[in-house]
Design a protein around this nucleic acid. Structure first.
Lengths: 214, 214
DNA sequence: ACGTTGCTGGACGATTTCGTCCACTCGCTT
DNA sequence: AAGCGAGTGGACGAAATCGTCCAGCAACGT
């Protein structure tokens, strides 16, 4: 289910080498998330991870391979987070409410945007090889929402007229767009508005049997 | 109302120089929209606009000044489009419906994303001077929606419980997020879903007096 | 007609950044 | 203990890109 990239290359590494590779990856992911892709040069990664220049070439022959690995790293993180028991498979309105609350209430994650969305926006126009990978990750993300919403509908928690696929895209778009606006405005307000409006819209489909306010 | 940048520098230019400056600007805007900021080097701009290297430095001393001017160029375009009579100040549901239809029905504008959103995502993390300019543009954009929605509420076209500011953020976020998802998926579906869901949500506030389906 | 101001052109230097190369060290196996 | 492979280190070369410099050209006013 995970994207599983770079495992082939990591198989023939000793524990020490694998640890070094992982260390590079973590620091690179943090730097790219913080400063963007093309503002993160190999010297920054080198200093942050405490490795020398040749090791980057050793574990990640080109910068593209590093970026690709970072995408998978963030993808696993984001998808894992959304698949955690915390949100109960997104099959209740409360789960979506908890999800939005998480981003709104947790201090400052909006300053750097979405780890995947920001990255996607930055490189979508340049590297076409990365395109398919990103598309797959977003498709999986959307599928998490869609499956949950579809289950809600099958269980009669929301009206049959609700379109799970459409609502899933709405949530994902509200989140991505809200993150962008919040990032630009340096204010979480737009994200909060977008997400709460999305949840409000979901509530309009809640069947009267199942209605209890959050 | 317009952002009005670079006008100071343009004032002491002859018509010929001003034409050259405008030509550079147009081609740079198109290139940046198509290929992104940091994939658009001055040689590409030079060849596209048919000017020599020194003219870029003449009219735009640094790349940042060029990007700044391009932002204003796109900002004027986007804000002007939304302020056109076409959408009647966004004070009817049909106006919002027409707005979404425009993006969904017009062939392929989603492939390169939103001219402002993509640009914002790419440089928000790098150049801090650009930050404020972008924030102002998005605030104006949001304000167009908010004023229209507020007017709708005052006219009783939508319920008093509707929050214009929140709905405005929702529309903008749905558009930006939908554009990003459509761009990554190379499919307009996500944008269509997000925008139609946003309009659907707006419809839930329509008062019974004013209800006529689109 | 002539000079000043603005416009144009190509070439150059400086900087950044990526990726490679060779030499050295560490740990494990024989 | 010796050898081999993996891991490590720093330095180097190559490429791209930005911005500057100086010289020639055009246009306008006096």
């Amino acid at each position: 289910m995970q994207v599983n990239n770079g495992a082939d290359a990591a198989q023939k590494l000793t524990p020490k080498g694998q640890a070094t590779r992982e260390r590079i990856l973590e620091h690179a992911a943090a730097l790219i998330y913080r400063k963007g892709v093309h503002a993160t040069n190999n010297e920054l990664v080198r200093r942050a991870a405490g490795v020398s220049g040749s090791q980057l070439s050793h574990y990640f022959p080109t910068k593209k391979s590093l970026v690709l690995a970072v995408i998978d790293w963030h993808a696993d993180s984001v998808l894992g987070f959304h698949r955690s028991e915390r949100f109960a498979s997104f099959d209740t309105v409360e789960a979506f409410q908890d999800w939005t609350d998480f981003y709104v209430l947790s201090g400052r994650p909006f300053e750097d945007g979405c780890s995947l969305g920001s990255l996607a926006s930055e490189i979508v126009k340049t590297d076409l090889d990365v395109h398919d990978r990103l598309a797959e990750v977003f498709a999986q993300w959307r599928e998490i929402f869609r499956v949950g919403l579809d289950r809600m509908r099958q269980l009669g928690r929301i009206d049959a007229s609700a379109d799970p696929a459409r609502l899933a895209d709405m949530f994902l778009a509200a989140y991505q767009g809200g993150m962008l606006l919040a990032q630009v405005a340096r204010d979480i307000g737009p994200l909060q508005d977008a997400l709460s409006a999305a949840v409000d819209h979901l509530r309009t489909f809640v069947t009267s049997d199942d209605q209890h306010m959050g």
